[in-house]
Write a protein that binds this DNA or RNA. Sequence first.
DNA 1: CTGTTAGCGCATTCAT
DNA 2: ATGAATGCGCTAACAG
Lengths: 343, 343
Amino acid sequence: MSGTTTNSAPTVRDVAALAGVSPMTVSRTMAGGRNVRPEVQDRVRAAVEKLGYRPNQSARNTRLRKPTGLIGVAVTNLANPYYGQFALGVEEVAAAYGRQIVMGTSGGDPGKEDRLLAEFADRQLEGVILVPAGRDLAAQSVPGARALPGAGALPVVLATRTVGNTEYDAALVDDVNGAAAGTAVLLAQGHRRIGFIGDLAGTSTAQRRYEGFRQALEDAGTAFDEGLLAAVRDTALAAAAVHRQLACRQPPTAFFSANNRTTVGALRAICEWRTEGHDAGVPALASFDDVELADLLGIPLTVMSHDPRRLGAAAARMLFERLEGKAGPEPRVVQLPVSVHSY
Amino acid sequence: MSGTTTNSAPTVRDVAALAGVSPMTVSRTMAGGRNVRPEVQDRVRAAVEKLGYRPNQSARNTRLRKPTGLIGVAVTNLANPYYGQFALGVEEVAAAYGRQIVMGTSGGDPGKEDRLLAEFADRQLEGVILVPAGRDLAAQSVPGARALPGAGALPVVLATRTVGNTEYDAALVDDVNGAAAGTAVLLAQGHRRIGFIGDLAGTSTAQRRYEGFRQALEDAGTAFDEGLLAAVRDTALAAAAVHRQLACRQPPTAFFSANNRTTVGALRAICEWRTEGHDAGVPALASFDDVELADLLGIPLTVMSHDPRRLGAAAARMLFERLEGKAGPEPRVVQLPVSVHSY
DNA sequence: CTGTTAGCGCATTCAT
DNA sequence: ATGAATGCGCTAACAG
């Protein structure tokens, strides 16, 4: 009746029955064996081995009123190599804190993001690292998607991008200064007409990078032709935009690309342009974010880079500090420095 | 005493107390409201809203003896863009099955892989998709890391690579035929001395690709100089190996690179070589796996590609079919086709 | 040293 | 239509 071989996972009781002891003795043995005779421990361990018993962690956590040991990571697109590295950074820190990560992708869709956060909350994840899809978080659709006290709260740390309502911890990049520094390099190289390629409407990062870009132009007393602003977000559209700008009457001599996706598109367009053999020199490119192999293309390239892995690690550390109560009630923001390098 | 505002998550009982009903009525209301007066439902819902109550999924699953709704994904290195896309494929299918994924990276370390699988099993994950680090799985160190019946079993589907003991389901790539087809292109282009860059000692993929490579040479009646075999696995070593081969007395006129990491290294070395202005033409490269921007380098390139996202999706489907008992007891292996394209 | 009791948060079963 | 008892797998607290 009890010792029957079912094909569901064995429990403490199955082990206890087989070893001829009480469930508690099994529990104690699994916990290290304090106050259990070695001889009995051996019997228990034999039974454990035989049945392939592994304690049910969820039940364990429930009883001990302990959290799940899981944190959520929600990014917009895992296919973007940037977020793979980012997730790795989160994972490494999480592992150091004895946690594992649940990954979800929003695909940039705020609705999907909301559902993802809701699932995370329902699964009792301890917190979430979120690369927000849009500009605002529908806090009300996820009761508790806030780091602040209150029951059922799901601590959130934003990463890479921020959102309108600024009540969250955030691990960002020094977008403004980084972009300004990269733009300064283009200016020092003599470029005066510079096209800006980036999703101004969509993300806070593009806006901040645009801000740094404009600031650098202003500091240099250079005017910006708004016609050189291309609000695009994906690779194909970026390529088209660059191509269009190069083909116009007064083409830019350089471009500023606001992220790695637009950079790939810009590089494609510039390479094509070069192959078509136009007389003016090859346009230069300043890219926010690094792209593998970009330095080999023979295009004058300036990269404003940071390590996405570090960013993920920083975000994770912020989350754990908050979970451990080592952070004050007010939201904290850190900004990773950006380094500029030219090829 | 009971209704006090604690800062831990509210439970059914807190809601029940606030609404002046029994926990069961709350439970029923949350479950859809069958057999609960609408008026009472409203009271309950108000209390739920006020407290920010969300049912504890773990407790729910425990009571209903339902699985966790989580599957594990263990890859060797999330920083490799290949695995980001792969994970995305898994995630999409998992979402369609109402599951979420727990991500872990082994870093290619079998010990870490074992610990990862053990943690997955302890967390009661329903199954695992594993890109194995080494050649064999220490099945005994993870009692139940097998798809076969028996208590505590953790169903495993291997992906990309397989291991020595072949008792697992696996979603692989048609490495042998793909590699042969790519090699055939090099041969058709007139290349006879071809260097092979790939981690023969480490992964089954490199071995299978080497097998296809050799097969194509043999079919063409071309001998292979074992001196052109470079057993390297990372980007830097691949670059060094290519450079070394190019500098030797009888340099190869083309290279076969067994994965995207070695391809990046090979491309770097070839570009450098070209810049150094050697008289012989630019060496050609056949790359297993696609690499972004590689086609723009002006290097004769042949790519043997497949979609890692599809591979992840295929692996996930295999896992769910097994979980649902829709697969026979014997392990199944699928191989994704490889398409060959030249630039 | 070991077993019994009780309860984590939830929902099924059986009362009423 | 509602509540009480019971148990999922596990372990603290208290027996003995």
